Amino acid sequence: VNMFLGPAGAGIYTIAAQISERLWLLSQAVSTVLLPRLSQLSSDESKRKQLTPLLTRWVLWITCLGGIFLATVAYPLIVWVFGEEFSSAYWALVLLLPGMIAGSASRILANDIAARGRPELNMYTSFIVVVLNIVGNLLLIPLFGLLGAAIATSLAYFINFLMRLITHRYLTEVSILSNILIRRDDIMLIRSLMSSE
Rank of each mutant, 00 (worst) to 15 (best):
T52F: 04
F161S: 00
L96Q: 02
A149T: 09
N133Q: 14
I180S: 00
S195H: 11
L35C: 00
G11I: 07
Y90Q: 07
N179A: 06
Q18V: 06
R37F: 04
F158M: 13
E85Y: 05
L34I: 06
V129C: 08
S178K: 04
A17R: 07
Q18K: 12
L132E: 01
I62P: 01
I182F: 02
L95E: 05
L155M: 12
R37V: 10
L5I: 05
V33R: 04
A150S: 13
Q40K: 14
F127W: 10
A152I: 08
N137R: 10
P76G: 10
F158H: 02
T56I: 02
G6I: 09
Y90A: 06
A17L: 15
R118E: 11
S192Y: 01
L147T: 13
P7C: 00
V135E: 02
T63Y: 02
R116P: 00
L140K: 10
T72W: 09
R57Y: 00
S39A: 15
T52W: 10
I141G: 07
L41G: 02
M163H: 03
G83S: 09
I151R: 04
V33A: 15
R107A: 12
L139T: 06
A110I: 08
E85K: 13
L5G: 01
R48A: 05
L181Y: 10
P53C: 03
L181F: 14
K47T: 12
Q40Y: 12
Q28M: 12
S106D: 12
L26Y: 08
R164D: 11
F86G: 07
G117W: 01
S196N: 12
E85R: 13
W80C: 09
G66C: 09
T153L: 08
G11Y: 00
S42V: 09
G83V: 05
R164W: 06
I62R: 01
N133A: 07
Y90R: 03
F4T: 03
S192E: 15
L162K: 01
L65Q: 05
V30S: 04
I190H: 05
L138H: 05
T56R: 00
I19K: 02
D186G: 08
R118Q: 10
L177E: 05
R169D: 10
T153Y: 04
I101F: 00
Y90K: 06
G103H: 11
L97F: 03
I182K: 11
I180L: 14
I134A: 09
S106I: 01
A156N: 09
L155N: 11
V135G: 03
I19G: 04
R48S: 13
A114C: 04
A114T: 15
Q50R: 11
R169G: 00
N122A: 06
M194A: 12
M188R: 13
L165A: 01
F127C: 06
S39G: 11
W91R: 11
A156K: 06
A29N: 10
I12G: 03
I151Y: 02
S20Q: 04
F86W: 12
D44L: 06
V135T: 14
P36T: 05
L54H: 06
T63S: 08
N122I: 11
L60R: 01
F127R: 03
R118C: 01
S87G: 07
V174E: 08
L132Y: 03
M123Y: 13
S196P: 04
Y13M: 06
R57N: 08
Y170W: 13
V79W: 07
S106H: 01
R116Y: 03
